[in-house]
Nucleic acid binder design. Structure first.
Lengths: 236, 236, 236, 236
DNA sequence: GATGAATGAGCCTTCATTCAT
DNA sequence: TATGAATGAAGGCTCATTCAT
């Protein structure tokens, strides 16, 4: 088989190997993230991580330079998803309220997966000075995205005038908190939470005229499938 | 002075000594809390704590049985303040919305002081099994207080019908997050933050009739001093 | 007794404690130096050092910050003795040949004790960048002392004209080598070696007139006791 | 080329292969020696060695059984050159002083090349018990060669009576030290150093009659090229 | 009450070496 | 022959905790 594949592409074996390596690396990351979240970064030993992957501790060093390097990657993966969400929302356009709701929904969803949780539950002070600064800067960017949308909404009339900074903090806080209480086997699915929070956190911000203008338009672009009128389910 | 008191009562010196001891114990707690918050529980060594108090590490063991014991006390002090706030609010009565706003205001203020921050920024899994369970239970009670007020508000018509559990999570999340971003030398005072958030987090929940019913009554019992109509300041 | 001593000097206990500490620290250094020399720096583990001192590994960290710190101290102690020897010789004065012989004798003796051996048998690249530079600079100073005396001798006529740099290397090399082959239970005492080398390494350098000038003066200030005419014993 | 040779002799490719292998093996040795000297045996990892050769670590095991095996070979190559020098000198004959000077010159030259330096700068205790004993025995033989020549010189009148053992130590020490301070880009060439030391280290040993007997004969067989009268260059 | 000293437990990391491919 | 991956062994270091003084 490998002979046949070699005819198709002499690079296939290379690719295979690289992919296998990347997959293993990712498996380490997933396990590490799980453990970091479950017991905390400090109490999660590399031995734990390795043992649960059926390898030995030094084997981890084939993929990462240090424990902190693993942590850094966890942050990177989580942050990357946030970045992509923001970039997509920015690309799609729409008024401030619409974009804010999209971001809330996307961010809420991220808070229900491990790498997203890592962003808000792990202590970034464990990172090296350099990585710490990078992560902090990225987090600030995320917060600024919320603020940007609020301010845009205030400008385009979709959101009432308010202190954008505090409002962004309030929203981000609500969302980050999801990473602490969400359980995959809990009462709410990630989608449900995302929808609920998109409503919950923007009802107070909606400009009255906006409500008049687009009574249901606010839901026009939401990605999640939802049966019937959500506003009846989560009324505030 | 203590010499005079000694003549009056042989017990006084004993009292003095006990008070001095309590003061020292409290000083340790304050310093430990600061350090735990500043660098993280694990990275804050007892040596650090002791050195900053101009004593030596073993001296700490005169006041606490272990590092974890110190952590436990930090939680206890923080939790006690929350409990007292809730108890006071419950004692005062009022409709759901009013009580909710009071709690938000009180909780927000707590998030700006060290022991309050400890509640939400330190990792309670460092605690012993027993303390962990206690702390978790208490945190659940706090959350239930939010939920109770929301449900009460829904029942008494001051708050719109909504998913009380999620709404409580959203509010608690916003407030807990204060403990992460608040800076004593920042742009907002604790009072300002408390007021802003009390508004921000309830505007979406206010039943329309409620607004009509008690345009300013909601602020009747608030503790913070505020000039004029707050709703003009924080409009959303 | 401690009560009596306290009357004599309330600081005595303090002094005692400090002395005890210094003694222990020195004991660690001696043992570490021995071990470093015996098996090499890398193969000498801190466990070895500690065990031979009937303590445990972490106890060493009461006296030193790291293994490298211990190594650094070994160098420092050895270097200090060399410095003192040079300083004393410089203070005493004398012509170049006389001073050179004194230095040879002193340096040879140092090569027979542990901390002296450390200077030439341990690898200074194990040191931190900073300590490495310091040690290197000091070694250069030592070498320059040899060179200075040779040049002084050439100037004052006690030593024949020669390439001082190479001559200093040759002498230093001979002496350093002692640190490698000397055995306390060997055929030669440190004194004997020192005397032999003082002669051996300077016979070729003696200016002929010098021999005439001071047939025995060169030995006038030597510290070692030697019976009769050394030049008959070690004739070259 | 290898194709043509293959027609001539079926063994040639085999030879080619063996030679290629030997060349690679030698390349490994050279690089390893360099690295061992540069950073020390312990701090030079096999990864370093391999990387600098553009191969990978396990590839080294095609040529050597272990890291220690590499070290052993370094010693062997260095020792072999010393042995050959001694054998050649013994074969050529001459009086003690002449042979001593030849050995000094040859040994000094060896101290300026890597494998020679390995002999005196690496720690032979890293070797296995067996190799260690062998290396030690060989080093003793080298030292005995110095001693032999000195004693022969004393017997044949070319060298003054002296303690041959110590004199040999002194000379060997001077020479070994070259391995520590020599720099290829330094002020002295290997030849210059060899010449200087041959004079420097024997001037004190020359029997007075010897100088009279053979004013220039001592240089008759020297291998290094030297313009004019060396004794003028290095006068001591 | 406070201190210096010591300890035990534990973790990250390195590296020579092996093995399947 | 060469490689990527994995391992076992070991060492340095940290820190909460205890104990004699």
């Amino acid at each position: 088989m490998s002979a046949r594949r070699a005819q198709i592409s002499p690079w296939a074996p290379f690719e295979d190997r690289r992919r296998a390596r990347d997959e293993k690396k990712h498996a380490v990351l997933r396990m590490a993230a799980r453990l970091f979240l479950d017991v905390g970064y400090h109490r999660a030993t590399l031995n734990d991580v390795a043992t649960r992957l059926n390898i030995t501790k030094p084997a981890l060093y084939n993929y990462f330079r240090s424990k902190e390097d693993i942590l850094e990657e966890c942050y990177r993966l989580g942050q990357q998803m946030v970045d992509e969400a923001i970039a997509a929302i920015d690309a799609e356009g729409g008024d401030g309220l619409t974009r804010l709701r999209k971001l809330i929904r996307a961010y809420a969803q991220l808070m229900t997966i491990d790498f997203g949780m890592c962003l808000v539950r792990l202590d970034d002070r464990e990172l090296s000075e350099e990585a710490y600064r990078r992560v902090r800067a990225e987090k600030r960017q995320d917060d600024l995205a919320f603020r940007r949308y609020i301010e845009a909404g205030a400008a385009d009339g979709s959101i009432v005038a308010c202190d954008a900074k505090l409002a962004a903090f309030a929203i981000a806080g609500s969302l980050n908190w999801i990473g602490h209480w969400y359980r995959a086997d809990g009462a709410y699915s990630a989608d449900q939470i995302a929808d609920h929070f998109a409503n919950l956190l923007t009802t107070g911000l909606e400009a009255k005229s906006a409500r008049a203008r687009s009574p249901s338009g606010k839901n026009a672009q939401k990605t999640s499938t939802e049966p019937g009128n959500r506003s009846r389910k989560i009324s505030p």
